[in-house]
Structures are given as C-alpha cells and as structure tokens.
Design a binder for these strands. Structure first.
Lengths: 191, 191
DNA sequence: GGATTCTCTTGACATTTATCAAGAAATTAT
DNA sequence: ATAATTTCTTGATAAATGTCAAGAGAATCC
C-alpha cells in the first residue's frame, strides 16, 4: 500500500527526496467507500483530500434541478473540493462514488501537520496546482473552440476506458451536451 | 507606486506581515508597453509574471487560423502564462496588449530570488492559485450549464465596464460565441 | 483629411444541438 | 425470477447558434 501511495506522490508532486516521500505518505490513510456513498455532500465543508487507488467518483452540482457533472475522478488522480478543503468553507460540489472506491485520504488536521513537518510541501503543492491550472485552461479553450462532436472525440481518445465504466450520460454532461446528442455522435462515429 | 503594488499583494496573497509586503514589492518593477505590443509571443517561453496597474491585455490562441480569446486581463489582476512561467516551457498562449499598459513585473530570475528570500511565498502563492482554480471550475461549469445568452448576462453583470473598453468580439470569443450571436443577444437585451 | 482598416450590425439561411416522447436493453432491487 | 428502475437509443420537431454576405459607422493610418 505504501509503495503505491509513494508512487502517486512522486508522480503528482515530483518529490525526489525519499525521506519526504515516506513522511508525506504516512499522513494518508486508506479509506473505503461503497458505491453511492458521498465523499462530499451538498452544502458541506470538504475536510478530505484523497488519491484514488481504486474506483470512480463523480463531481457534480445542480442546475435547474438537474445534475451537471463537472468532473469524473479516476484511479491515479486526486479528489476533493479544493477551495472548500483549503479555505474551510462550504463546498461548491457534490462528490459521490460511482463504484466501490478505495482512497488514500488525508484530513484537514493532518494536512496542517503535514505542512508543518514537510517544509517542501507548499512548493510541491504549488507546482501541482499549476499543472492542474493548465489543464483547466485547456478544457475551457476546448469549450471556446470545439463543437460537441470534437469535444467527444478529444475526450474519447484520451479516456476510452472510461466509456465502459460509468453511465454515458455522466460523460455527456461533463462534455457539455445532452445524452441524446452524445448518443447520436457515437452512432455516427461507430459506422 | 510601491503603495499601489503593496495593495495588490495584500489583496492577492493576503500578506499581513508588512515586512514581507515590502520585500515582495521590491522585486517587481514598473514596465510600460504600448498598445499592440506582445507580452508573450506565440511559441515563446513566458519569463514574466505581472500585476496590471493600468490597461488591458488579451490572452488568446489560434484555432483553425482564427484567434480564440481565452481571457481578457484587466487592472488589479495579474497576467502571465502560468505553466510556461513556472515550468520554463513553451507557452500555450499569445498575450498582447489591447491598450497602452503599465505593469508591475517580476522576471523568472527575480522570482527565484523572491522564493528564496520570502519563506512564506510558496504558501501565499498556493492559496492564490487555489482561488484561481475555483474561478476556473466555475467558468467550466457555466459552459456546461448555461446558454450563450445566460453566459452573456452573467459576464455582463460582473464586468459591464469592460464592454466600453475592448472590441466586443473579444468578449464574444471569450464567452464562446460568434460576434453575430453576441450582437443579437445585445439587441434583445437592450430593448 | 481622405483612404483604409476594423468593428458592429443585420438579414437570409444552414447547421448544430436541445427537447419531448417513446421504447428497447441493461441493470438493480425485491 | 420478476418487477422496477436506469440507461441508452431513435424519431420528430423546435430552438439556439453558426455561417456567409453586405453595409454603416468608427477608428486608425499616412
């Protein structure tokens, strides 16, 4: 387990110092959730930051009474409501497991300790956030410059496995189209 | 000048320690650009991070030979190609002034010194990035859940001054619609 | 200050995407 | 196993948005 987590930490934060790796890893605890459980309920403060070892979670919010999927979080990546976790304020998102899930989780009080005990942490986390920032810029750019069909294609090429793992209307929503449009694009592309 | 910059630094990073404020401010230098100048040219590495004292810059990229505006940067905010600046790699964006501009600028070598001399910096910058991260999440959510007209309305309510300061087709592009659609929405709303 | 370019609008029309309704297929619950 | 629910597809139609073309007005250049 620790090796796995250490690997995530290396990948995410580029920690090369092995002492830091071990120290950072020691703050995270294995957490299991059942399918359908909430990682974060609407209107609550998010007190956890987790790497996903196994399983899938969906980040969404309501708009006009409908669920709009903002992101689908998969193994090897992290999950949290970042603003809520860092600033200890009410979250913007609902986060729910879509399958049974295994996480490496740190809660806020341990996170505070981690920052105190690993001086490099803030720098590492900053670099990590800059990477995320760039990914979000690209995602916005796609909405400014691509059609629904092109967004489908780009996403499919990078995430084809996911299409067998979650209801497709989650992906449709995350790409900013209705399930019907999504279905018609698929039909066209399979021919 | 310094007071102004110190104010930005307080606003952005929530620095309360006045010694840090002064120290941070001392690394930034006033830079003036003329209208039409490039802050960052396509394919180059971005070696600056700047607060905007006066004027407007546009962040864009090309798609199918057309300029797509990703962001319009205004006074009181910052401008850079973050991933390029931090990781010293080729930028994703072109950044061009839309008016004459006055900036408080730090270049990469001074940025390295700043990090070394102000221990709190990484932590401050991290918090700043988390805020930006949340803003981008919201922007994506708007593309998933709002129509062009609704995006217009939300943006107009928060940024009405901007509509007198830049060509409207920049704003149209940034909101993910054509200038024609933008124009028709305006017509409808003015009545 | 006249020419040129850029900006914005408008109309006609095409295309994309959403909506509504229905049903088949798959999954889940009892 | 059966029923209930969810997921996915399909068709018909409506609405939103894009494209192309033209022109008026404003800003900019020489």
């Amino acid at each position: 387990m620790n090796n796995e987590l250490v690997q995530y930490i290396k990948t995410y934060f580029g920690v090369s110092n092995s002492e830091d790796q071990t120290k950072i890893a020691s703050f995270f605890k294995l957490e299991k959730l059942n399918r359908g459980d909430y990682f974060l309920k609407g209107g609550h403060v998010c007190h956890k930051f987790s790497f996903i070892r196994e399983g899938i979670l969906r980040v969404f919010a309501y708009h006009n009474g409908k669920e709009v999927t903002q992101w689908i979080a998969t193994p090897g990546y992290f999950v949290t409501d970042l603003g809520s976790f860092i600033f200890n304020k009410e979250g913007s998102w609902v986060i729910q497991t879509s399958t049974d899930v295994e996480l490496f989780t740190i809660d806020r009080s341990d996170y505070v300790k981690l920052i105190a005990q690993v001086p490099a942490w803030n720098s590492l986390e900053k670099l990590f956030l800059v990477s995320c920032f760039g990914a979000m810029e690209q995602r916005i750019f796609q909405h400014l410059s691509l059609t629904a069909e092109e967004r489908y294609q780009v996403f499919f090429e990078a995430n084809s496995e996911l299409f067998n793992e979650v209801p497709l209307h989650y992906i449709a929503s995350m790409l900013g189209m209705t399930p019907e449009t999504f279905s018609r694009i698929r039909k066209k592309r399979i021919k």
